[in-house]
Nucleic acid binder design. Sequence first.
DNA 1: TATTAACACGAAAACGGTTTCGTAACCTTT
DNA 2: AAAGGTTACGAAACCGTTTTCGTGTTAATA
Lengths: 342, 342
Amino acid sequence: MKRKITLKHIARELEVSISTVSKALKNSEEISKDTKEKVQAFAKLYNYKPNNIAISLKNKRTKNIGVIIPDIVHHFFTTVFRGIEKYANAKGYNVIVCVSDESFDKEVINMEMLANGSIDGFIMALSAETQAKNDYKHLQEVTEQGIPLVLFDRITDEIACDKVVINDKEAAYLAAKNLIDSGRKKIALITTDDYLNVSLKRAEGYLDALKDANIAFDESLVLKLPYGAIENITEQRVEHFFNANRIDAALCVNELFAIHCMGVAKKSGLRIPEDVSFIGFTDGILSKYSNPKLSAIAQHGQQMGELAAKMLIEKVESESEEETYKTEIIKATLISRGSTIN
Amino acid sequence: MKRKITLKHIARELEVSISTVSKALKNSEEISKDTKEKVQAFAKLYNYKPNNIAISLKNKRTKNIGVIIPDIVHHFFTTVFRGIEKYANAKGYNVIVCVSDESFDKEVINMEMLANGSIDGFIMALSAETQAKNDYKHLQEVTEQGIPLVLFDRITDEIACDKVVINDKEAAYLAAKNLIDSGRKKIALITTDDYLNVSLKRAEGYLDALKDANIAFDESLVLKLPYGAIENITEQRVEHFFNANRIDAALCVNELFAIHCMGVAKKSGLRIPEDVSFIGFTDGILSKYSNPKLSAIAQHGQQMGELAAKMLIEKVESESEEETYKTEIIKATLISRGSTIN
DNA sequence: TATTAACACGAAAACGGTTTCGTAACCTTT
DNA sequence: AAAGGTTACGAAACCGTTTTCGTGTTAATA
């Protein structure tokens, strides 16, 4: 087994000091050409690579960034993650991922683990439980220690830090407007029990679009489904909702709701998009391969991730102590497919 | 900004030595009760947490594991990752993810970055390019340095290390047998251009099942589609394949092929499962929400990830130098849904 | 020839911990 | 009272780097 070689080994072997070796490898002016060549040749031969940990300790910079997300088996989050990883890697950073599993405690524990020197900064989306509890002490602590933090998608106003979000409200407005413009009158909003603030934003956009089109808001056109256990949603309930209210369009706050409801609607004899149009939030795998293909609001996760990483790394690498925070908005766009008329 | 407090700060403040503080915090017998209480109280008050990097340097153990996968926006890989992360986290390890993007060079670069002290071991699935080149020097180097390595799913025989795979061949056999047993005669195999060794294994199982049922293998029942760009597959080609060969069942080596072909088959008037049965490999999101729901081979990614992490951590934490490697096999199972008759 | 500058290198501190070992001060024993 | 044993702590080495500063040797200058 070839153990990793260190400066000390090289120094001993070449009968020079550690400092000389270190400088020679950095091509320092201080060291003679001869010595440099000798050292560099030796280092190359034995494939010397400096130890990252030692450098981290010295520099107080790890070149690691911590990412904490509620779930990893989730199309949107992985998309964002891909953007983060891509940008970070290009800048020489590695990414440590922790999954909070929508749990407040895990989020806290993960942050604490990483905050003790393992990373240079955090990128995170809050867990549902954290948002429900409205408790952000752990974020507070981290920022107080001067560790840069970028929040994306699931954010909070309680913490002063950089943020990246999509224009949820506007996107919902656009989607609803698209439905209205195509002649739809009874537009359903299919949403979650609303502790997730994204759902709220989307509802606002929906309401505004109705208002601007002089369509009275009808509470009975709102269907609230449980987030998560979609299998438990009885088809009868959904079917009844569609038929009783003579729904002719549905705006769904997530892809699964859209696909599920579209399936139920189809089964109950409704034609899509002739009888009912569907638009879902989050353009994921399901939207692309459903039948008909689902029109969806694309959240451009990768772009979001790249931007978040860019913002974080800029903060990490900036010397200045000034505390100025930005909230960047990624423009969500409507991708029209077979589930709507155009 | 409250900077992180160190042993040195505590020592200075309490007018004792650094060693005393260190020992006091570890509840060492050497230190008097009084001093211990004093130090511990102070540490708690100022929320002292040891610096991970310093500990890593001292211990030569980072408590990080490196995961290198070809893609992250990929249901199976994220599922495995979830298993890895879950197990690792429970054991106090963090996970650094790098995405090779199916590129040999990125895989090499990522490994080298991490191999210089950042991690205690690797878990990885080979990139397609690496498998095509059949070049594993980077893996060789890492194992020679004594860094534990666990390969999963996309593995190679060239490297001696722990491995976790599913019983691809057997699972394909079972799937094909299931189709045969339900009375199907013209069973298509829909597979990739075959540099991916998993596809080959699956083909073998298919062939064996045919043989055991005394069904002659018919080359024209094999459809090879390009991996990746599924959108570019013309529907005509697929439709023609189904009709010309009077296919009554299809075993697809991945979910996308299955969903795509099922969609085409449906469009061309074939009823599923009455006229044609479908079974896909990889039980992902699409299978659960397609219409009809797709019967699929579940690869139990999370279990695979947990096992890989377990094997790795055992190696990492074992003192012994002995080189014994295992290849664990996760049993894939057939999940019967609406696309097959039972 | 004496002084100074340039050169080439090494010693040592620092990053933040852990751990081994040495020792002063007190206590117990004979 | 001398010897031995505890107790409670500190000094220092170590992990692998980087970097500052000091210094001996040689070459250039006055």
